Computed example of a mutant assay.
Amino acid sequence: MNVVALIDFDAAGAATGHRLVDPDAPQLLVTDLGATRGDGIFETASLVHGSVQALEAHLQRLVQSAAMLQLPAPDIDVWRDAVREVGATLTAGGVTEGSIKFVLTRGVEGAGVPTGWVFGTDSPDFTADRTDGIRIVLLDRGYRHDVSQTSPWLLAGAKTLSYAVNRAVQREAARRGADDVLFVSSDGYLLEGPTSTLVMRMGGRLVTPRVDIGILAGTTQADLFAWAESAGFATGYELLTPDDLAAADAAWLVSSVRHVAPVRAVDGAARAIDAELTARMNAALDARTE
């Protein structure tokens, strides 16, 4: 099942509301800079049993990405209403687990009016990823961990539509017999997956890479850490290396729709997974509300 809501804008580029449209009808002009240049931003939230999870965190990250690209600041109230209506429509149609993607582009070149839409659909079945685990490869991202300070124009840490590299590394992972990728900086620090955040258990602590190294602040990872702290785990944001990953008691890639996927192999080397903790993590994420 697919549901689409368009964001309406006035001539000055201010959002005025939203409307549901036919998901099978064309809605995007071929001259839109989102299509021709990848000039835009997006967020993807999970819908579980009628709840759009971490909605406020996703909306705030949309605002941050818009500022980094110098796009018009999203009207949070308009976007929130659109996302909620798409989620409610999916739920009414029988969807128990879905994804909702919201997109803002610079619009048609020269028009000065952005384009925005919200797209909701059923989620794939991630049961195997969440229980059996995934095989990952470490791939060089091609820049240092401090790129966001040295070269802010590269937009490291913004969730942009320019996903050609992220798709290319997924194909490279498949070529190497793996399921996903974890990026490593050119100076040897663990970063993030193409669509996920790394979390590792080291004894009684859960750690993740620092968010000032040109990576996205993970919305799902933040919720996971909040649960972990209530469950008695210490949490931390650190500079981490492949040696830290090899020494960790367990590791996961965490994302909005797939949720918690334990890592069962790195570069072809098998590693143990913590099935009991993984199940607790996924149950905690499923229980979230907005």
Rank of each mutant, 00 (worst) to 15 (best):
Ala5Pro: 03
Gly13Pro: 07
Thr16Gly: 02
His18Ala: 13
Arg19His: 13
Arg19Asn: 04
Leu20Ala: 10
Pro23Asn: 10
Thr31Met: 14
Leu33Val: 00
Arg37Pro: 01
Arg37Gly: 01
Asp39Phe: 14
Ile41Arg: 04
Thr44Gln: 05
Val48Gln: 13
His49Gln: 14
His49Phe: 12
Val52Trp: 05
Arg61Phe: 08
Val63Ser: 14
Met68Leu: 15
Leu69Ala: 12
Ala73Asp: 08
Asp75Gly: 01
Asp75Arg: 13
Asp75Lys: 08
Asp77Ser: 15
Val78Met: 04
Trp79Ala: 00
Trp79Leu: 06
Ala82His: 05
Arg84Tyr: 00
Arg84Lys: 06
Thr89Asp: 02
Gly94Lys: 11
Thr96Phe: 00
Lys101Thr: 15
Val103Gln: 01
Gly112Pro: 09
Val113Trp: 02
Gly116Ala: 06
Trp117Asp: 01
Phe119Trp: 14
Phe119Arg: 01
Thr121Phe: 04
Ala128Arg: 15
Ile134Ser: 02
Leu138Met: 11
Leu138Asn: 10
Leu139Pro: 01
Arg141Gln: 13
Gly142Glu: 07
Asp146Tyr: 04
Val147Pro: 02
Val147Cys: 01
Ser148Met: 14
Gln149Lys: 14
Ser151His: 15
Ser151Ile: 05
Pro152Lys: 12
Leu154Gln: 13
Gly157Ser: 09
Leu161His: 12
Ala164Phe: 07
Ala164Trp: 08
Arg175Met: 10
Ala178Asn: 09
Asp179Glu: 10
Leu182Ala: 08
Leu182Met: 14
Ser185Asn: 07
Asp187Ser: 11
Leu190Glu: 05
Leu190Pro: 08
Gly193Ile: 10
Gly193Val: 10
Thr195Pro: 00
Thr195Phe: 08
Thr195Val: 13
Thr195Asp: 10
Ser196Ile: 06
Arg201Lys: 15
Met202Gln: 15
Leu206Glu: 06
Val207Gly: 03
Ile215Asn: 07
Ile215Trp: 03
Leu216Ile: 10
Leu216Gly: 11
Gly218Leu: 06
Thr219Gly: 02
Trp227Lys: 05
Glu229Trp: 03
Gly236Asp: 12
Ala248Met: 08
Ala248Ile: 06
Ala251Ile: 04
Ser255Thr: 10
Val257Glu: 06
Pro262Glu: 09
Pro262Asp: 06
Ala269Glu: 14
Asp274Leu: 07
Ala275Asp: 11
Glu276Ile: 10
Glu276Asn: 05
Thr278Gly: 15
Arg280Asn: 05
Ala284Met: 06
Ala287Val: 06
Thr289Trp: 02
Glu290Asp: 15
